[in-house]
């Protein structure tokens, strides 16, 4: 990333803010969430990951801020800290809204363990909505898989398809994701375990993207350690010799 001169100047500045009554000093340019995490203050999140740009979809990380006489609810994963900012991470308004968020998520994902646990922590045991509305999704459309694939892996094999209530991460044309290299980043970042990945009999399968990959066997120890496609992708990208991945990292 490039910064203009004045931006660099801003980045190195520091500000003082108050979180839950306690004063903290923080680097300008950081988000409230980053500062909270740095200082061991817990704020629940679902769509956020350190390696990936914040997105602001799940809204779980909401906090209440005071500026002048006005109070406002903002998402802490996006809000940049400011001098004199007053933040409450668990004010009544925040808790009320977080509860409703979890209520809505639970209605969507009524059988998902992660969501049920999280909702339970906020006292939401069953959805407030009538049973006919309950759904059994696992995906909460946080977009982490799609963003990881694009921003971290650089492959963009999958994307968010459709909009509104139909929006979900899907492979193009709902067919086998042809650019997928089987690296499994999506599987690792998914907060609700909505993506199933399995390595079995020399093959890795990710059903959601309708893909299967042959796994590479280490020529020394014989372990099947990574999809051939992924290794080829890395080898080409970094211009590595053809036999570079014949041996697994453990045996190297």
């Amino acid at each position: 990333m490039m910064f203009a001169g004045w931006e660099l100047l801003r980045l190195s500045e520091s500000v003082t803010l108050t979180i839950n009554g306690q004063k903290y000093s923080a680097e300008k340019g950081k988000t409230i969430l980053q500062v909270a995490v740095d200082n061991g203050i817990k704020i629940p999140t679902l769509c956020q990951h350190e390696e990936i740009e914040p997105y602001g979809a799940c809204r779980l990380c909401i906090v209440e801020i005071t500026k002048g006489t006005r109070n406002r609810i903002v998402t802490s994963c996006l809000y940049p800290v400011e001098e004199g900012l007053i933040v409450q991470t668990d004010s009544p308004a925040v808790v009320r809204n977080r509860k409703m968020l979890l209520d809505l998520l639970l209605t969507r994902c009524s059988e998902n363990e992660v969501i049920r646990d999280l909702a339970g922590q906020y006292g939401v045991k069953t959805p407030s909505f009538r049973e006919e509305y309950w759904e059994k999704h696992d995906c909460i459309v946080c977009g982490l898989c799609v963003r990881a694939c694009e921003q971290v892996v650089g492959v963009s094999a999958i994307s968010l398809v459709d909009r509104g209530i139909h929006k979900e991460p899907k492979p193009p044309y709902l067919e086998k994701a042809k650019n997928c290299i089987g690296c499994g980043s999506c599987y690792y970042v998914c907060p609700t375990h909505a993506i199933h990945m399995e390595d079995k009999n020399g093959v890795r399968r990710i059903d959601r993207w309708k893909v299967e990959f042959k796994l590479k066997k280490c020529s020394k120890c014989g372990i099947e350690w990574a999809p051939v496609a992924q290794l080829e992708y890395i080898r080409k990208k970094w211009n590595l010799p053809a036999d570079f991945f014949d041996i697994c990292p453990n045996c190297k």
Binding site: Y55, G56, F129
Partner: peptide
């Protein structure tokens, strides 16, 4: 609004639907 919501954030996507 349900048809037109972009579907990004939970309150709108799930809330408007309900």
């Amino acid at each position: 609004l349900e048809e037109e919501s972009c579907g990004k954030c939970v309150p709108c996507r799930e809330g408007v639907k309900r």
